[in-house]
Design a protein around this nucleic acid. Structure first.
Lengths: 247, 247
DNA sequence: CGTAATATTGATCATGTTCAACGTCGGTGG
DNA sequence: CCACCGACGTTGAACATGATCAATATTACG
């Protein structure tokens, strides 16, 4: 008996959704079918969605990293979230007339692009898929709230530490964070924009985290060398990422 | 011919949803019926939802202000959003096992408490209501993203100014911000927790905004004396609050 | 009228920014 | 193959925004 979705293009998406809320066999099959026919590739540093433009399809990320960001008129930029493999980019977003923010790839990305009609048909065809996708939305909202806490009330060290804890925890269910280590295609400039800090200060903060033996980050690989200590200094509580779990 | 929902308990909720996405006659009637039977009252400073506890009903706010907030282990608190009259508190939230944050009243509040089954029945009974509620969710997510920008990339003056612009804009469709003025049941301490600043600095920032003739805030009334200038210094762009509008 | 919560003020302090320079790495074209 | 180039990372010093602490109004309300 193979795990759900094993080996298919939609594997990451199915693993993630199934972890959020169990999918039916029919739901898994429907997702596999839908994804397989709509695969797209994008290079790094490409805008998939642009602020102010209409959006009429939903994207499911099969591999690669993206970020959501907004830029003020004077150039200050804030990354408001990352989008990781297995995640769905904006369920039913086409009910809005236009995008309120921009979505850009941080690395080459493979994704499935599902148009409005097919997405609605998917939601209507299988309750377990519809509920899992709604759960994903609820978790996404919880993540966004935690980012407000991070930006508003944690200092630089805690902020960066918390971000690392969160990202690794989000990569875990799709199998991309074995041994507390993961591919990390994010520059210090981008880390700065995600944490509301300057690039210079991010650099110094990373050195402090490295120096304390909490992480190692070089090239494109992030490792949490001492996850418990890191979570402790970050006041990290993974509950917000798991709709069904309580400590 | 009276406007939709005029004079009924659900008036604010209906005005807001209808502005987001037009409601059918049947949808309005269903909302009115549902709300009328489930009215609750809460005093100020009361927790309606507590972090870590299960949530099994959806609330629609008829009057009064609330906030969503999270507190770190050492007491630092961040208000991650306000909840205003006419807004729905967490569509389908019962798909999560427990709340990731706390919801507390800032003033006496009147709300309708809709249990899971009735809420699901409402969604199933009328497409226009289901879509309007989903639109509300999408706007809520856009608001949460904008808060990340506010906390991450705006300085104190811009931050407070932006918050004021947003709140007044959110109150406008329900008729609670005539003449750029509204009831404002928020202490400086709470403003500090919402903007990620200290209460002392919020006080000084308010004085600066007052001194520049941009706002007046005394007692429980906020007035935007010069909305254009305020929006300008805050880099405020109302698009994110309106799913169908582009400048 | 008294009390607690809220608002205000001044002074000192600290975290993180800015600026400017230099180092390093990977890729690309001669 | 190597030299160059641009992006990214690192360092130091000066600066600034906002935090903290502590004292003193002011207000709301029982």
């Amino acid at each position: 008996m193979t795990p759900k979705g094993q080996g298919t293009a939609a594997q990451q998406v199915i693993r993630r959704l199934d972890a959020l809320r169990p999918l039916s066999e029919a739901g898994v099959a429907a997702l596999e079918r839908l994804v397989a026919e709509r695969i797209r590739h994008a290079a790094g540093n490409t805008d998939l969605i642009s602020e102010g433009e209409p959006v009429d399809s939903v994207r499911m990320i099969l591999s690669g990293w993206l970020c959501r960001h907004k830029t003020l008129a004077d150039g200050r930029r804030q990354i408001v979230n990352f989008i990781l493999p297995g995640e769905t980019c904006d369920a039913r977003i086409y009910l809005r007339g236009f995008a309120d923010h921009t979505v850009t790839t941080l690395s080459p990305v493979i994704y499935a692009e599902v148009n409005r009609d097919d997405y609605e048909a998917l939601l209507a065809s299988d309750t377990s898929v519809a509920e899992a996708l709604w759960c994903e939305l609820l978790v996404d909202m919880a993540v966004q709230r935690e980012w407000a806490v991070n930006l508003g009330r944690r200092d630089a060290l805690e902020r960066v530490a918390h971000l690392f804890c969160e990202l690794v925890e989000r990569l875990r269910p799709v199998g991309l964070a074995e041994a507390n280590s993961c591919d990390f295609p994010v520059t210090q400039m981008e880390l700065a924009d995600a944490t509301g800090l300057s690039a210079v200060h991010v650099n110094r903060t990373l050195q402090e985290l490295r120096g304390s033996g909490l992480i190692s980050l070089s090239g494109r690989t992030l490792t949490l060398s001492n996850p418990e200590a890191l979570e402790h200094i970050a006041f990290f509580n993974r509950n917000y990422l798991h709709p069904d779990r309580r400590d």
